[in-house]
Design a protein around this nucleic acid. Structure first.
Length: 215
DNA sequence: GACCAGGCACATC
DNA sequence: GATGTGCATGGT
C-alpha cells in the first residue's frame, strides 16, 4: 500500500512525463562515457561538460585504456572547459585506477557486482560522492537506485515532500520506500526533475503554467 | 560584475 | 553533526 507521499510522487512523475516527454537519459554513447560525464558535471553546467567530452573524443581517450594512458596534467588541459579541471583530472584517474583494480577494466564485471557493495566501493573512491555514485549505478549500469540532486531537493521541498535539512540518504530512502525499485522510472523521473529545474524554474517563465502547478 | 551550474573533500568547531 | 571554504570554466 502506497503512502500519501507516494501518490504525490506518482502524480508528479506522470504530469512531468506527459508535459515534457521522455528525456532519453543519460546522454552518452557508452557506460564509460556516462561515468566520465557524471564526474565532470559535478557542480558544473552540462554545456561545459560537453566541450570537455568532445575534446576527450577528439583525443581518442574517452575509453578506459586511453584514459589510463594519458598523463594527468595533460588530461587536465583536455578537460579544462568543464571547470575544476585539475581536481577532476585527479578524480577521473582515481576512478580508472579503481576500475582496473576492482574489475580489471571490464564493464561487464563491474555490472555483475551487486548494487550495495558496488555503491560502497564507489564511495571509497576519492572524488565520488553519493550523487556521482548513484548516477553511475543507475545510468551507466542500469541498476535500480534513485539519484538525488540539488533540483530534486528543491522541488520536493517546495512541494512539501521533505524538509530542507533532510540528508541525501533520507530523501533517497523516502522515494525508494514509496515507489519500490524501478530502474526505468528512476531513470526518467530524475531526468525530468533536472529538466524541469533547468528549463522551467530557472529558464522560461516561473511557476505559472508549470506542469506541477497546484500539486 | 554578480550569480549560477546535474558536488565533493577537508578543516574546524 | 553542522558549517565554511576551495576548486574554475563559461553562460546569463
Amino acid at each position: 500500500m502506497m503512502g500519501s507521499k507516494g501518490k504525490i510522487l506518482v502524480e508528479m512523475f506522470e504530469r512531468l512525463l506527459r508535459a515534457l516527454g521522455p528525456r532519453h537519459w543519460w546522454p552518452g554513447e557508452s557506460p564509460f562515457e556516462v561515468i566520465v560525464g557524471a564526474i565532470l558535471t559535478q557542480n558544473t553546467s552540462w554545456a561545459n561538460v560537453e566541450r570537455a567530452i568532445s575534446n576527450l573524443k577528439k583525443m581518442g581517450i574517452l575509453n578506459p585504456l586511453g584514459m589510463r594512458g594519458v598523463d594527468r596534467d595533460e588530461l587536465a588541459q583536455i578537460i579544462k572547459p568543464s571547470g575544476f579541471y585539475r581536481l577532476k583530472a585527479n578524480r577521473l584517474k582515481q576512478f580508472v585506477d579503481f576500475f582496473y583494480e576492482e574489475f580489471d577494466g571490464d564493464m561487464n564485471r563491474m555490472r555483475s557486482r551487486d548494487l550495495d557493495s558496488l555503491r560502497e566501493g564507489l564511495l571509497k573512491v576519492n572524488g565520488i560522492g553519493p550523487e556521482t555514485a548513484d548516477s553511475i549505478i543507475l545510468y551507466a549500469l542500469g541498476k535500480p537506485i534513485f539519484v538525488v540532486d540539488a533540483y530534486t531537493k528543491r522541488i520536493f521541498f517546495r512541494h512539501n515532500l521533505i524538509s530542507e535539512k533532510w540528508s541525501y540518504e533520507e530523501v533517497q530512502g523516502m522515494v525508494m520506500g514509496e515507489l519500490g525499485r524501478d530502474v526505468g522510472m528512476y531513470n526518467e523521473f530524475h531526468a525530468l526533475l533536472v529538466f524541469l529545474g533547468k528549463y522551467w524554474c530557472r529558464g522560461i517563465p516561473r511557476c505559472g503554467g508549470c506542469p506541477l502547478e497546484g500539486l
